[in-house]
């Protein structure tokens, strides 16, 4: 176990994250050339079926983004000890990049406009609209699918959330430069992975009885079955984000927070498993 842990710590997860981010942004530009938010489903079908290498670039964009998120999580875990030197403000800003990254992934998922993407968007909108007073303005800012289709989500996906992410992470990432040449194996792995695994796309099947959201939201989808959108969609996820934002060793509730996060993730993993087994 110790060997695995020390091997894990040796991996340069931060470099891996940046590399995956570069690939995600570059492939995202190629996908955006062909994507039209006015006709999302048609657009994505066209990219997959008609545009030369369209399916490949969409897959590359999808999986490099997923890898980016996973590498970021590994990076946070692996560098947690060193990160103790950060001020509270720096730590809060850096950990806030995680939910913003999730928002970018999630909006990309909605932008496909297929049956699961569209339903995920509707659920997100319903959760926000359940928030008293601030729900409507936040929805207008972030999603507004019912009134504006994919227009706002698209702008937020390619500009708004990326600017927010950049603002939160800039003081950290500006210190690092990662070149493709130093990570040829990882670069080739991501490029090749997308050749063999297509990005998901699910047309509307009339008889379908179960659709699940993106893997990181399957637990939340399960929770929405039992609790109100306010509890399952806002309060429960917020508690995790707040706990992570406060998780520094100098915090006197550090141990309690650690136990809370562990329990939260454990329960969420069980809910996710239940969701996948449906």
């Amino acid at each position: 176990m110790k060997v695995i842990w020390s091997k894990f710590l040796e991996i340069k997860w931060g470099n891996y994250s940046l590399l995956a981010l570069y690939i995600s942004v570059l492939s995202g530009v190629v996908v955006a050339w062909q994507y039209d938010p006015a006709t999302p489903f048609y657009s994505v079908s066209t990219i997959d079926l008609l545009i030369p290498f369209g399916e490949y670039f969409r897959s590359l964009h999808f999986y490099s983004s997923q890898f980016f998120f996973l590498f970021c999580i590994c990076h946070v875990i692996a560098t947690f000890e060193q990160a103790q030197q950060y001020s509270r403000k720096q730590w809060i800003m850096l950990t806030a990049t995680l939910p913003v990254t999730l928002l970018i992934l999630f909006t990309g998922y909605i932008l496909r406009g297929d049956s699961t993407g569209f339903s995920a968007g509707m659920i997100a909108e319903a959760i926000l609209l359940d928030l008293p007073l601030i729900g409507q303005p936040i929805n207008n800012l972030l999603f507004s699918i019912t009134d504006n289709g994919m227009k706002r989500i698209y702008v937020n996906h390619i500009v708004g959330f990326c600017l927010l992410w950049g603002w939160l992470a800039w003081s950290h990432v500006k210190k690092y430069r990662v070149s493709f040449n130093n990570h040829i194996a990882l670069t080739i792995s991501i490029l090749l992975f997308s050749v063999f695994v297509a990005a998901p796309f699910e047309p509307d099947h009339l008889g379908v009885t179960y659709i699940s959201g993106p893997w990181f939201l399957v637990g939340l989808q399960e929770l929405l079955r039992y609790f109100s959108p306010m509890v399952a969609g806002v309060i429960v996820p917020s508690t995790l984000l707040i706990a992570i934002a406060l998780l520094q060793k100098r915090n006197r509730y550090y141990r309690c927070l650690l136990i809370f996060i562990g329990c939260w993730l454990f329960i969420y993993a069980i809910l996710t498993l239940i969701g996948f087994l449906r």
Binding site: S119, M122, E125, A126, T209, Y210, I211
Partner: peptide, 22 residues
């Protein structure tokens, strides 16, 4: 009317069902 997913009609059971939370 729960959270807005698109429901389907299941002819065999003569009912409509939502694929998100059934």
């Amino acid at each position: 009317t729960h959270l807005g997913c698109t429901i389907n009609y299941h002819e065999k059971d003569d009912l409509l069902e939502c694929p998100c939370h059934q």
